[in-house]
Write a protein that binds this DNA or RNA. Structure first.
Length: 142
DNA sequence: ATTCTTACA
DNA sequence: TGTAAGGA
């Protein structure tokens, strides 16, 4: 054993998923996507790998996963514009889900703070439909 | 040696 | 779309 103490013998160690460490050629080998295609996809807005100080692309494990998802869509015949829109829709859905969750939590807090008992209510929609119908009927008779 | 952008056919 | 030039 010489003093090559910087040899990496911890084979289980892996960079964090968001840690951008792979050069474009490594990303290409890992995904079986040609280097030029990766560059094209980035220009189309499908990818946004980090850049090193020198300006070269640095891909993270998350980027590799994204590349595989894009490749799957392309293999299904989706063109690049379609892929971009599908990815945007996914992001929008996540945002909507998060927002909805936050609203529900706010609602829970407000409900308990107000002291109302909504145990009988089955859903927002059935409740609203019932009250609207009652109001309309009252207006017609009166 | 590799990667990057730009440009040209 | 592919390839070559030229810089980092």
């Amino acid at each position: 054993m010489t003093d090559r103490t910087d040899d990496r013998r911890h084979e289980g160690e892996r960079p964090a998923l968001s840690h951008a460490v792979y050069g474009i050629s490594v990303a290409s080998e890992l995904t079986d996507i040609p280097v030029q295609t990766l560059r094209l996809w980035e220009r189309q807005g499908l990818l946004a790998p980090q850049r090193s100080k020198g300006g070269t692309r640095r891909f993270s494990a998350d980027d590799i996963t994204l590349i595989r998802r894009i490749a799957a869509l392309v293999a299904d015949g989706v063109n690049l514009a379609g892929v971009a829109r599908i990815l945007d829709l996914r992001d929008a859905n996540e945002a909507l889900r998060d927002n909805n969750k936050a609203l529900q939590e706010d609602n829970d807090i407000l409900r308990s703070a107000a002291g109302y008992d909504f145990e009988e209510r089955q859903s927002v929609h059935s409740q609203r439909a019932r009250t609207d119908g009652t109001r309309n009927r009252a207006r017609q008779t009166g």
